[in-house]
């Protein structure tokens, strides 16, 4: 049956060429999509600290049990106050480090005495990321004064979900995708201060 085989071969060849053409067309379309923005790097989730309002959803809406979002201290923006409104609970009774006077529910902020100058006592406040649960209480408290504490997605913990659950729950749409080579943001108020201190 040479005829039947020929027909079959012809049909097979036609089908193959259609498949290859289809595959090539699809590939080139996606190549165009990929190439349209130049060099495409991985994108990571991050919080724009200028939009964050410290609502606490980061602690409760992350798919991780303990949120990938944590508070960070921008030291060049910190006033090193003795009465830190981000450290002491609003109802504090004593200026000490006992738990009932602390705002942080997990005691994740370390208060270290640095220096006494012109009658003023300066303390450094450092976040222990292992203890921080990302509730943003300190961020909201600190915002009453300088606002040097802010929220950031920690990329050693973030799973990089395609749709970030916290981003969906974020009331101010503060979540954004940032390129992987610069995965952390800072407040725009902090930019000149950080520059000033890094030059020194």
């Amino acid at each position: 049956m040479p005829n039947a085989t020929q027909t079959k071969n012809r049909r097979g060849f036609l089908g193959d060429s259609m498949r290859v053409a289809g595959a090539l067309a699809t590939c080139s379309f996606f190549g165009y999509l990929a190439g349209r923005k130049g060099r495409n790097r991985e994108l990571l989730w991050q919080i724009d600290p200028d939009k964050c309002m410290g609502c606490g959803n980061c602690a409760t809406h992350c798919v991780l049990d303990i949120s990938a979002v944590k508070a960070v201290q921008c030291f060049p923006m910190c006033g090193y106050c003795d009465i830190c409104t981000g450290y002491f609970d609003v109802g504090y009774t004593e200026l000490d480090t006992s738990a009932e006077n602390q705002l942080c529910p997990t005691s994740a902020i370390v208060r270290t005495f640095i220096e006494s100058k012109a009658g003023q006592r300066f303390y450094e406040y450092t976040i222990d990321p292992a203890k921080c649960i990302g509730c943003a209480k300190c961020v909201k408290g600190c915002a009453l004064m300088n606002g040097s504490l802010y929220m950031q997605v920690m990329h050693d913990r973030c799973l990089g979900c395609n749709e970030c659950s916290i981003a969906v729950a974020c009331p101010t749409e503060a979540f954004c995708r940032v390129p992987a080579e610069a995965p952390y943001l800072m407040k725009r108020q902090a930019i000149p201060l950080v520059k000033k201190f890094s030059i020194r």
Partner: peptide, 17 residues
């Protein structure tokens, strides 16, 4: 997903001023 029940949720962790 939108934290609509957030404001009065008992698990809400925000600082209440």
């Amino acid at each position: 997903p939108w934290a609509n029940r957030g404001n009065d949720s008992p698990t809400r962790s925000a600082l209440d001023l």
